[in-house]
Design a protein around this nucleic acid. Structure first.
Length: 400
DNA sequence: AGGTATTCACATGAAACTATTCTCTGAGTTAGG
DNA sequence: TAACTCAGAGAATAGTTTCATGTGAATACCTGT
């Protein structure tokens, strides 16, 4: 028998650690939401009028990542949907994540997406925005119903496009005859509403709700309840859950990260033929997550971004702090070498800022007094990650 | 010594431009009656 | 005459460039002691 066949045979025979891995994915909505009773009730109170076909006030939810915002909303919407269905109430809810590239990250695309939810296709480009709006109006008003529109990561939208969209959406109601629209905004950014048009602000945040981070104990319970359903019994060594939640608490109580960590740890343990998931697997998992996200992000960057990144890698061994000007010089040479067109320093400045935003590099603006003001760039990566990163970039840029 | 003023090396902003992808429209062309 | 083709006008978007303005603090330059 072939070696590989053997491997597969064993693979099947060996019991998996997991009963149901999907429970540990971030898309999973559990049957109960732990430690968010208060918020859950609050959301329910605010949105309940919708079931009587009265328009609830717009709701604005904010809190850091992994504090259960999305989960809570999805949970409430799901149960409201069921009730509405049973009682024949024409309630519709649409959940849209505004961060998704090329789906809903501009005004045009957002509205187009909404229209799509009503079963009509809008071409990706070519139409005037007003046209798309009017199609949306028409569909919305066609039959009497109430629409709950959830805009997740709404800050991404306004960062890019300004708050005109929100303004338009909030005043849609005045033009509608049959239907009504309620907007629920979700944001990770705690000061998001500060720099919003006052009109939009007052209208959007009729009700505001803050989601505090989970503390370590709550996190443990959450992890335990998920782990209980996702893993087979006794495969998790005692202490792992505790350690995992401690890791996450260190990062402002991000439950999503904690759950990811647990899942990856499980996968690693399984792959290493271990009997149980141990604490060492957690460390390994954390490392893997960090390194993977960076490598992945780097892989998916446009060519110019990759060149800039590669330029940084070239200087980094010799210096601890690197400045924009130095990078630009190296970058220029690099471009000549691979026959790319050379972008202006202005652009490189933006690219560096963006790489920083994505967490691939660390850039701080410093003033060197008489010697100017610049970004100070550092790579806080492990040696092994740097090597891998270099390989990836060389391959992608066709360098030897 | 203490206080201003300069100055560097970019950062940051706004507007405009380029290229690509796509729709819509209306003129010109074609095929069939 | 209806159906078809096809070029041109207009939009949205991403990625840049151009031009203009902003900026923090180490130095240079005074000033009066």
């Amino acid at each position: 028998m072939l070696k590989i066949d053997h491997f597969f045979e064993n693979f099947i025979k060996k019991d998996s650690f997991f009963l149901d891995k999907s429970i540990l994915l971030s898309s999973y909505v559990p049957d109960e939401v732990l430690y968010r009773e208060e918020q859950l009730q609050e959301v329910a109170n605010i949105l309940a009028p919708a079931l009587r076909m009265e328009r609830p006030s717009n709701l604005f939810i904010y809190g850091k990542t992994g504090t259960g915002k999305t989960l809570t909303i999805k949970y409430v919407l799901r149960s409201m949907g069921e009730i509405a269905n049973k009682n024949n109430i024409s309630l519709k809810s649409i959940y849209i994540n505004c961060k998704l590239k090329r789906v809903a990250d501009t005004e045009y695309r957002l509205i187009a997406r909404l229209v799509q939810e009503y079963g009509q296709d809008i071409p990706p480009t070519g139409l005037p925005t007003d046209e798309v709006y009017s199609v949306f109006y028409r569909l919305l008003d066609q039959q009497r119903h109430l629409l709950l529109l959830v805009l997740d990561e709404i800050d991404q939208l306004t960062d890019k496009m300004g708050d005109e969209i929100l303004y338009n959406l909030t005043r849609i109601n005045t033009d509608l005859k049959n239907s009504q629209l309620c907007i629920i905004g979700i944001s990770n950014n705690l000061v998001f509403s500060e720099h919003l048009d006052p009109r939009v602000k007052s209208s959007l945040s009729g009700e505001e709700l803050f989601f505090p981070p989970y503390n370590a104990l709550q996190m443990q319970d959450i992890l335990r309840s998920r782990a209980h359903k996702a893993f087979r019994e006794h495969v998790i060594q005692p202490g792992v859950i505790e350690k995992c939640s401690a890791y996450a608490a260190r990062e402002h109580g991000d439950a999503r990260r904690a759950i990811d960590l647990l899942r990856i740890a499980g996968e690693l343990a399984e792959r290493n033929n271990a009997d149980k998931v141990e604490i060492t697997h957690l460390d390994e998992a954390e490392h893997k997550i960090d390194s993977d996200t960076i490598l992945n992000a780097a892989k998916n960057q446009p060519k110019q971004f990759q060149s800039v990144l590669y330029a940084i890698l070239l200087i980094s061994p010799q210096k601890r702090q690197i400045f924009t000007g130095e990078i630009y010089e190296i970058y220029k040479n690099l471009c000549k070498q691979c026959k790319f067109n050379v972008l202006t320093q202005r652009r490189i400045s933006d690219i560096l800022a963006e790489l920083d935003m994505q967490g691939i590099i660390k850039a701080t603006i410093i003033s060197k007094g008489r010697y100017g003001r610049t970004r100070e760039i550092t790579l806080s990566l492990e040696e092994s990650t740097i090597t891998k990163l270099k390989e990836i970039l060389e391959k992608s840029l066709h360098l030897s």
